[in-house]
Design a protein around this nucleic acid. Structure first.
Lengths: 138, 138
DNA sequence: ATAATGGATGCGAATGATTCGCAAATCAAC
DNA sequence: GTTGATTTGCGAATCATTCGCATCCATTAT
């Protein structure tokens, strides 16, 4: 099971998307800006491979389909249920939590990656609407 | 936008699944053990409704499709990449983290719900395989 | 009561994401 | 350079999820 060039290109696309979280189609678009093109089915297979390898992790945002991000151990995602926006904040504080969780789990589970997701209402949406979640893209 | 009886039944099904995390089809199966049956499309619509209402949250486990759980603010999910098993641990410790995140976000984001997901290898899988993630259901 | 209004539901068809099956291409090792 | 295994391209198949529309229900106004 090698890290072939298609797979590398997929990984690069995801890593190169700093901040944004691509879905499969966007990954394909990014990869296929260079020749030779990679077939969509292969993109999916590469994604599976990269996830299994722990290089990439899947995340579920507001939408119905899966997005991908480079595994970097520590993303905290703020997902606004109003507008669907996603902001990611750097994972410095959670280290302490991770440590204590790790202590609690001792031996029973070996953590490879983690992520945290907060859903709620961003400032703009809480201004424009009284009831959070009552409006937006979806 | 009422909490109709179909929607209630969907909510009960999800709440009744203590521990397990149902996907849409499983919710439908649970709901339709009682008459009258609820059409799958309505199940989906109810799920949307409940998510928007903040009563239910979507989670992404190992698989490719979405699962649902009662929003209870504090689930930490341990997902094993080997066997696909999911264990949930109670959310006592994260309170502190939430507080400090809340402080850091002051005003910019109003948190309604949160969840955290650790992926890695459970004990059994790390025993049976040297390389984590190299084997399993998927 | 009755009619009028605005969701909510059932139903089947449509959509769209993801996967499969298979043949050709690539790569590694002998 | 032949063998064997893995990967890729390709289109068809599958599966989850959503849509359109007619009907139904509950609530409010007449």
């Amino acid at each position: 099971m090698r890290l072939t060039s298609s797979r590398q290109r997929v990984l690069e696309a995801i890593r190169g998307a700093r901040g944004r979280h691509l879905d499969a189609r966007e990954v394909a678009a990014a990869v296929n800006r260079r020749r030779p093109e990679v077939h969509l089915a292969t993109i999916y297979r590469s994604l599976q491979y990269l996830v299994r390898r722990g290089l990439v992790s899947r995340i579920l945002l507001n939408e119905d389909h899966v997005h991908y991000e480079a595994a970097h151990n520590g993303g905290v995602h703020l997902v606004c249920t109003g507008c669907g926006g996603v902001r990611e904040i750097a994972g410095s504080q959670p280290q302490r939590l991770l440590q204590s969780l790790g202590r609690a789990l001792r031996g029973r589970f070996e953590v490879a990656d983690w992520q945290m997701q907060l859903s709620g209402t961003c400032r703009r949406c809480s201004r424009t609407a009284a009831r959070p979640g009552a409006r937006g893209k979806r």
